[in-house]
Design a protein around this nucleic acid. Structure first.
Length: 857
RNA sequence: GCGAAAGUGGCGGAACUGGCAGACGCGCCGGACUUAGGAUCCGGUAGCCGGAAGGCUGUGGGGGUUCGACUCCCCCCUUUCGCACCA
């Protein structure tokens, strides 16, 4: 045999990375087609808003998805891993207002730049499937979808008070109001009355809630947020007749605590309640009208967050409490919400904190009707509202019942007497999609004087967004200023008509793009149902937790709309959801305004994309936020260089191996130990990547293997890597024993294969160096032998009084009695038992193995 | 206020179903090689005692269950994140 001398190139990531990225692009390496012979895997990261430059916080998400996609590909799955751009939206328009760039130019330039950034990171996307929502070939299907929803009464138009952001000059959906402010700019939201388009998401409220329970691979946190957002309340509507006006009916209230109705000593109406609005217009109601005006002018934010003091006004009217038969006053209160329930509530001051405060302030009577079980109400009762369940008192025939039962019986009684009904209320509101903006999908309807609102026929789609528009920054839609767009003819009568000038909320675009990726160039339909049947649902979806409500509820809703249209049989679009943590710098979120962004291109230039990827994956679990440090990145670079030196120096040795399977050879202890380590590492990395996505521990397992390999070479006299090799002109020796080479080859190849999802460019280069063609990305994932991964013998810990004092190495078939015997004979154990009496000796067994526990006094 | 999650070395973090706490990395200390080392290779690194072998104490605090608790249960403290007049 003898020695091979080998010059080892230094690890220079930039050249390697460029080389492989070019090859992947030229070879369309990650494009896929339907293949019924292989299991499919749809791996998706939330597509990107093309804001300009991506920082490492953005790209962390794509790197996580890429590790999963690459690993799944190697494990034999047909992997769909596409990318695209959520390209409509406000910032493009703001850029137009500020510096005159057309939104389209601004957007397309940003896309080009960011696409380059992602390609330089080596993310394995099927770029052939790239989509941008601002292109007519995409947004025409938004319009198509809208028309289908219109046909099914899932889209409708109504005048309503809407959330208005005075800074962005647009309407916001409820989901887009955060702490009373605009989700984008934080400006406090005001109210406006406008004709608006809505999607009837409430039709699916119950299903979205109920099916959510079955999303077992979603984070609990997200499911809880969605559940709270949908906000189901079980209760009853109860009618309180108006006193003295028999034919005017009465006022319905919604309550979840009908058991407290005997304590309802007043009624409260929202300022928006239609009845109060009517009363305030009557003569002599100037005071009421004034108060109403004042309430409605109160800052909506403050009203919603409870910062405004509770205030009321006595309307002078009375209603009859249908259970007590007594007349109670009707007040208007600024804290009652017009849009929830019936806009009217019964005031039960003894059992509701808010009503209690209200009653104290205005001197209204407080009647206790529920007592804590097993005790009388304390003297404090009148000082505080007690909101718990208990035993009813002073409630006529229902006195003595427990709250839960009382709710049942009293609801039934109300139903029987025709005063009310069991109902369920949801906090979820219909989704307002109208936006008075330019850079979005035009809503495809026209208004004709003769025919009214007329949908644009589907064969006339798309309604194109005109290229020229004036961006004034005023509140009205720029489209309304373009006569060539507005003036049209009615599709029904051919007469003059005006186009709708609002555009759609961009969340419409993003609520079905994952279907489009399955069939991105279809020009007959949004997608071919058969293709979605093959690829859907998304198996692994990752993105920021900030989309827990908005995007993720809308997508679940629109998925059901497509189901209703017969386009898919899927109930849920995303099987597994991973919400990745943010990247912080100096404890703060990266943002352009804070000036603390880390540009991936800078890092790639210094350390290479592979080191950047490895660092971000290694530093913390994907769900956790990470603190950016340059030192950590440098550590990852060092690790890669260490792998490079190891593999490059041993490549020739490994390539010349003449024993294929180390399993068939006699191994010495050192060789056997390395082989066990290899199989053990394959097992760990495989499990860390697949059921769980513990990328950080997968990397540390690979680091351990590398450490062991260096140790192996150091201990093996005929192999030299490391310092000597490096500083003395790079020497690697061929091992004398074929077994050594076989074991080494197995370890090195497994290492390169498993490291490749993290550091794909370097591993491609090394894989080629090891004599393989066809690319590491397409190579099969290494397999492990359980028997090798495990130790051949069982190691059994021995505890004395709870502390482990010894470990016995025994044959796995030794029985419990033998273990006891060996444990007591162990010198370490004997030392700890000196002068004590053994009272108990237990052999405990679990999946982790057996254990001997000795108790001595 | 309500709800959820989390508290482990100087730091980021491991420990899967209760079984050697601190894997792996950063940082730091030392050795080798060197004109040099901020490169590389090797070793050390929770605290305290000890020359060493070894021992004791340790996973926010206090109780409990168990042969055995970072892990399970109860109370408290702290932090983070959601929700927040939804009747």
């Amino acid at each position: 045999m003898g020695y091979n001398f080998r010059i080892v190139r230094e690890y220079r990531p930039q050249a390697i990375e460029r080389k492989w990225q070019d090859r992947w692009r030229a070879g369309r390496a990650f494009e896929v087609s339907e293949d019924s012979d292989r299991p499919k895997f749809y791996c998706l990261e939330m597509f990107a808003y093309p804001s300009g430059h991506a920082h490492v916080g953005h790209v962390r998400n794509y790197m996580i998805g890429d590790v999963v996609a690459r690993m799944k590909r190697m494990r034999g799955f047909n992997v769909l891993h596409p990318f695209g751009w959520d390209a409509f939206g406000l910032p493009a328009e703001n850029a137009a207002i500020q510096n005159g760039t057309h939104p389209e130019t601004w957007t397309l330039e940003n896309i080009a730049h960011m696409k380059g950034q992602l390609q330089r990171l080596g993310i394995s996307y099927a770029w052939e499937r790239e989509i941008a929502t601002c292109l007519p070939e995409y947004y025409r299907w938004n319009q198509w979808l809208f028309l289908k929803m219109l046909e099914r009464d899932l889209a409708y138009r109504r005048r309503s008070s809407v959330n208005w952001c005075p800074s962005c000059n647009t309407v916001l959906a409820n989901e887009q109001v955060v702490d009373g402010g605009c989700w984008r700019c934080g400006t406090p939201v005001t109210v406006r009355e406008l004709e608006q388009w809505f999607f009837r998401i409430t039709r699916y409220a119950e299903e979205l809630l109920d099916a959510g329970i079955r999303l077992t691979d979603w984070p609990d946190k997200v499911l809880t947020m969605q559940r709270n957002w949908i906000g189901r309340s079980d209760g009853a509507r109860v009618r309180f007749p108006l006193e003295g006006v028999a034919d005017e009916g009465g006022i319905d209230v919604f309550t979840t605590r009908i058991d407290t109705i005997y304590g309802a000593t007043f009624m409260l109406l929202a300022p928006e309640h239609p009845l109060v609005q009517r009363w305030s217009g009557e003569t002599g109601a100037e005071a009421l009208a004034g108060t109403l005006g004042r309430f409605q002018a109160q800052d909506r934010t403050a009203r919603l967050t409870g910062e405004v003091e509770k205030e009321g006004f006595d309307t002078g009217r009375k209603v009859i409490n249908p259970f007590t038969g007594r007349a109670v006053p009707v007040w208007v209160a600024n804290f009652v919400l017009g849009e929830y329930g019936t806009g009217a509530v019964m005031g039960v001051p003894a059992h509701d904190q808010r009503d209690f405060e209200f009653a104290r302030k205005y001197g209204l009577p407080i009647t206790v009707v529920v007592q804590p079980e097993g005790q009388g109400l304390s003297a404090d009762a009148m000082r505080e509202a007690w909101e718990g369940a208990g035993i009813l008192v002073g409630s006529g025939e229902f006195s003595g019942l427990a709250s839960t039962e009382a709710i049942e019986r009293m609801t039934a009684a109300a139903e029987a007497r025709g005063l009310g009904a069991r109902t369920v209320e949801y906090r979820l509101k219909d989704w307002g999609i109208s936006r008075q903006r330019y850079w979005g999908t035009p809503i495809p309807v026209v208004y004709c004087d003769a025919c009214g609102m007329v949908p644009v026929p589907t064969d006339e789609l798309p309604v194109l967004l005109p290229k020229t528009a004036a961006f004034s920054g005023r509140g009205d839609s720029p489209l309304a200023q373009i006569p060539a767009f507005v003036d049209t003819t009615c599709p029904e009568c051919g007469g003059p008509a005006r186009r709708e000038t609002d555009t759609m909320d961009t969340f419409v675009d993003s609520s079905w793009y994952f279907f489009r990726f399955c069939d991105p160039h279809n020009d007959h339909l949004p997608f071919d149902p058969e293709r979605v049947a093959y690829w859907g649902p998304v198996d692994f979806y990752s993105g920021g937790v900030e989309h827990a409500i908005l995007h993720l509820i809308y997508s679940r809703f629109i998925c059901r709309v497509f189901r209703e249209l017969g386009m898919t049989v899927l109930d849920e679009p995303f099987t597994r959801l991973l919400t990745q943590g943010m990247v912080l710098k100096a404890g703060q979120v990266m943002s352009k305004s804070k000036g603390n962004v880390v540009d991936p291109d800078d890092m790639i230039q210094r350390y290479g994309a592979d080191a950047l990827r490895l660092y971000v994956m290694f530093v913390a679990p994907p769900e956790k936020e990470i603190e950016w440090t340059d030192a950590g990145l440098e550590g990852s670079y060092r690790f890669l260089a260490r792998v490079w030196r190891l593999v490059a120096q041993l490549a020739e040795t490994v390539r010349s191996a003449d024993v294929a399977d180390p399993g068939g050879v006699d191994l010495n202890d050192v060789e056997r130990s390395l082989r066990r380590k290899t199989h053990n590492t394959v097992k760990r990395v495989t499990n860390d990547l697949d059921p769980r996505v513990h990328l950080n521990t997968a990397v540390s397992a690979l680091m351990e293997l590398v450490n062991d390999l260096y140790g192996f070479c150091g201990r093996n006299g005929s192999l030299r890597v490391g310092r000597e090799a490096d500083s003395q002109g790079s020497v690697a020796a061929v091992a004398q024993r074929p077994a050594t080479v076989a074991v080494l080859k197995e370890a090195i190849e497994a290492l390169v294969l498993m490291l490749s999802p993290f550091a794909p460019h370097m591993c491609e280069e090394l894989w080629e160096e090891l004599g393989h063609t066809g690319g590491v990305a397409a190579a099969p994932w290494p397999h492990y032998q359980e028997a090798v991964a495990r130790a051949e013998q069982e190691v059994v810990p021995v505890q004395v009084n709870g502390k482990i004092r010894a470990r016995l190495t025994v044959d796995a078939d030794a029985d419990d009695d033998r273990l006891r015997e060996l444990a007591l004979a162990d010198p370490q154990v004997a030392r700890h038992l000196e002068g004590r009496k053994v009272t108990k000796i237990v052999v405990a067994g679990g999946q982790a193995g057996r254990l001997v526990s000795i108790v001595a006094v």
